Amino acid sequence: MPPKSAHHALQLEHERERDATQGFEPKGTFGFIRYLEHGFPSSLVRWHYHDEYELHLTLESSGKVFVGDYIGQFAPGHLVLTGPRVPHNWVSIDTPEEGVELRDMVIQFAHAPLETLAGVIPEVKSILPLLHRALHGIEFFNISAQAHERFMRIRDSTGLPRFIEFLTLLGELARSSDYQLLSTIPMQSTDDDAALARISSAINFIVQNYASQFSMKELAQQLDMPERMFSRFFRSATGNSFTDFVNRLRVNKACELLMETERYVTNICYDAGFNNVANFNRRFLELKGMTPKAFRQQAQGRFGA
């Protein structure tokens, strides 16, 4: 059956959960911009979403990052902007037994004040395209050291000086051309808790069992839904067909194995959950624009191997 653990379910982050003991600034001590920092493990590390934009900078550890329907890897210096209600999570996989004291620096802010400001101050309009792209999640490159300095100034300031630092940082990100969009669709969660629970259960099952052989019909039965209804429901919630979602998840795993191991491509095909090499090669080419072999060669060159 699909997992039902609350730890794995997609959760709306409520204001009442944002207490100072977790690293949030205490309520009443901040204005439009809220700063947060925390270590790992932490109760804040979970698959969740909220109504604010979130600018997230990783300082220590590496692992898996999940933004919308994107699954990738992160390391120190990883800088991502997520839009309102875009589900996300960072899960470290290489931390020492005692954990990490400070892993993340986070800035959260709302949309409406910036939109209003852009309506009366033309200079602010330049950040609106950035905010629109954030509905996909944006990973920025070669700007993390500069952003880290801004984060610290924002953390250590209040009032107008903080707001000026914040706008300056957004302006720098808006001008950056060295970025990639993460989620293939501008994925935003809804207020329907029952629907969230169902789609979260389905996605979690797929993520945890990608290497196994299962069908849409079997998963629909586990969720007590007719197959055709489940197909429409899944596409509406994720922007992808069931088959496309599973294939993309498996190709993502294959990319990881191609970069991190020397296993034969044929073996990686089965490790990633494909049961046919020809189909694996075809799906990989569709999604990555190159063969698995070419991907490995490019990856080796990128990392200086």
Rank of each mutant, 00 (worst) to 15 (best):
A195M: 11
P84G: 10
E260L: 14
G68H: 07
V265M: 06
T184E: 12
S201N: 01
A211Y: 02
E25Q: 15
L181T: 13
P87R: 12
L219P: 02
I93V: 12
D19W: 10
R162N: 00
R228C: 01
M152F: 01
S144M: 01
Q208R: 08
P26T: 01
P41C: 07
G39I: 08
C269F: 05
K27D: 12
F109A: 11
I203W: 02
F284L: 04
H132G: 00
K293F: 08
G301E: 00
G39S: 08
H132C: 00
D192Y: 03
L102A: 13
A174V: 09
P292S: 06
F245H: 08
R232N: 12
A145M: 07
P2E: 08
V246W: 00
H48G: 09
I199Y: 09
E98L: 11
H136F: 13
L170S: 11
Q222R: 03
Q188E: 15
R85L: 13
I199R: 07
E98T: 10
N267W: 02
Y264L: 10
Y35T: 14
E101D: 15
S212F: 03
L170Q: 11
I107P: 13
I121K: 06
V246F: 03
R133F: 14
T190N: 07
A9F: 08
V251S: 02
A174M: 09
R162Y: 02
A202S: 07
R153I: 00
A197Y: 04
R85K: 15
N281R: 15
L59N: 09
M105G: 04
L182M: 10
Y210H: 00
Q73L: 08
N240C: 10
F242V: 01
P84M: 11
S144K: 01
N267H: 02
N252H: 00
L169C: 07
A118S: 14
L36G: 02
K217S: 13
F24I: 05
